[in-house]
Write a protein that binds this DNA or RNA. Sequence first.
DNA 1: CCTGCTAATGATAGCGCAATCATTGAGCTT
DNA 2: AAGCTCAATGATTGCGCTATCATTAGCAGG
Lengths: 357, 357
Amino acid sequence: MLAKNNNQVQILPMKTAKKRTSDKKITLVDVADASGVSAITVSRVINQPEKVSESLRIQVQKAIDSLGYIPNQHASSLASSKSKVIGVAIPSLSNIVFTEVLRGIYEVMGAAGYKVLLVDTHYSPLEEEKMVRTLLSQSPEGLIITGGDQTKACQNFLHKARIPIVQIMELLADPIDMNVGFAHGRAGFDVVKHLLGQGYERIGFIGARMDPRVQQRMQGYKLALEQVGKFEKNYIVTTPEPSSIGVGGDLFKSLMASTNGIVDAVFCVNDDLALGALFEAQRMNIRVPQDMAICGFNDIEAAEYVNPSLTSVSVGRYEMGVKASEMIIRVLNEKPIDSKKVDMGYEIKKRASTSRI
Amino acid sequence: MLAKNNNQVQILPMKTAKKRTSDKKITLVDVADASGVSAITVSRVINQPEKVSESLRIQVQKAIDSLGYIPNQHASSLASSKSKVIGVAIPSLSNIVFTEVLRGIYEVMGAAGYKVLLVDTHYSPLEEEKMVRTLLSQSPEGLIITGGDQTKACQNFLHKARIPIVQIMELLADPIDMNVGFAHGRAGFDVVKHLLGQGYERIGFIGARMDPRVQQRMQGYKLALEQVGKFEKNYIVTTPEPSSIGVGGDLFKSLMASTNGIVDAVFCVNDDLALGALFEAQRMNIRVPQDMAICGFNDIEAAEYVNPSLTSVSVGRYEMGVKASEMIIRVLNEKPIDSKKVDMGYEIKKRASTSRI
DNA sequence: CCTGCTAATGATAGCGCAATCATTGAGCTT
DNA sequence: AAGCTCAATGATTGCGCTATCATTAGCAGG
């Protein structure tokens, strides 16, 4: 029982208290005392065990275990200015797209001994700014953030941070530091080309949330149709709501209604919407793919197994998380990286839902 | 530019360096100097602004903004032993069940000014032990962990931690501190009762991963069938693999094969498996629900929209995250909680896939 | 006018750890 | 045997912040 650190006279409780475990927090010094070495040696046993002789190391380790010592990371970070924390900002926790990226990040960062501090920006740049401040206050050693839609103030913070930063998900013209993503616009373009190639003529678009990446996909869609003179403004149905299967069904119904069912294909901006459209089409007795093609985006597992199987755009989400993490770790270890900008590409998985031929 | 803190004679660089922004890390003291007050006053402006006169507060805030000062949380935590961090351990990032719980946690914790440090235990108690150490090294103010399957050593750490801890997902006989969950065994039991009530006779079971909660569901299934003398060991097909739609289809095929197609209902331990079974049944031209009932678990969104719609067990995942978080925050604020143990309940959503009548 | 009080601000001393430099004692070289 | 290197260990100091107590000024009440 330690005396409180003021200059009053202390009446210390009976010595019996001395042996009590588990009350006070155990510190490095406690372990040092218990094992008869100096504090710094205990520190070495934990952080650079190769610098301590084996006998001492074992002796100290024994004390650590028996006392149940757990290092205080705040003290360690403060003293060493190394936090072993990587900050990650994603726009949504409920979107499988981001959770799979996260999996990749956790896999690599965990293995490299980094903790991940994760924040949710709710697709809002303002929220993101607040969250980035939070992240920075933890002195992270690196940062992974989504997209390039930061506020001015946020960009300022990020530039000043002087740590490796990767912006993920989309390809950016002017990244803050590093960038891993793929070309959403081109993917949307290619989807339409595929549908046209299958003989579909009047191709609708269903979108929700309409974040920057979704917008890019829509631009690609529009461009491809304009090139062949088949773009019709009223074939586009969108909502700011978050995506879901239910919303997909609703949007599909509303597309059918507003176009008098003339549309013969739909590009849904993600697979949830596409599944909703597909299930709704089934309920409306519209035959897919004979009367209606449906194409999704992201290639979630259900796309492959649903009947008919769903054409979708496959992107390496997990791999994107892995890549971004590896780049950060390489920079932290002062190893060279191939490029500051990585295009992960995508692949259109052509399945039954768009194959009229 | 500060002189390095050793006792060598220093040759300070020319004064021009003084005005340079953005190089050194900005600290409290820099802000204090810039605004002509003491460090502690700056600290108050940040943490207890009501204790500082308005004029000073504005003056200091201006300095904070113009310098782009971001407090160092490690120093703050070390000095105050308050980290504003909540540790969360879940078994999997790719399972929607946990990400929805997480959403609830983030919602509440974010609003209350807590950061969430999230770790993934990969369904392994040993990994969990390591991860809990990691969490504790951040001196979290509270902990949310999954289930009750901790190692002895881990339980020890947790007991010593003296912070509010909630074990979520399942109801525990002997929780470490607080507990929020629902009765998986009873849910499994009720599912079977429902299927029996619909006139199904030979009820199979499909399970993957087989974590403790899945085991409990299986026990409930078994009990219900034993009570009516209809339990058949070989109607159970499981795999230690993680759940997925693909695995669900495979297990369904193998159940059909090993029972010569005599089974007329399947309780799938989650909705991914159930969707896999449903899609596979469709491909095998087995009519659902006429020839085969399929029941899932968790009630993910697809269950409601797939054709035929899928009977499933709905559980308040988001709400569970919210509840657990609220309990921790109440304890941290020294407010009373209704009970240390909360049963969130569940509801069987009876849909077309099990309705022969 | 003095006492007593409160509100506003400051000085000081750590929080628990690791960077830095110092010390010791082998083991080697020549 | 002197001089050297190097490995192993320790003493000291400060990372950036806040808890604690001290100080000051302003003001009410008698």
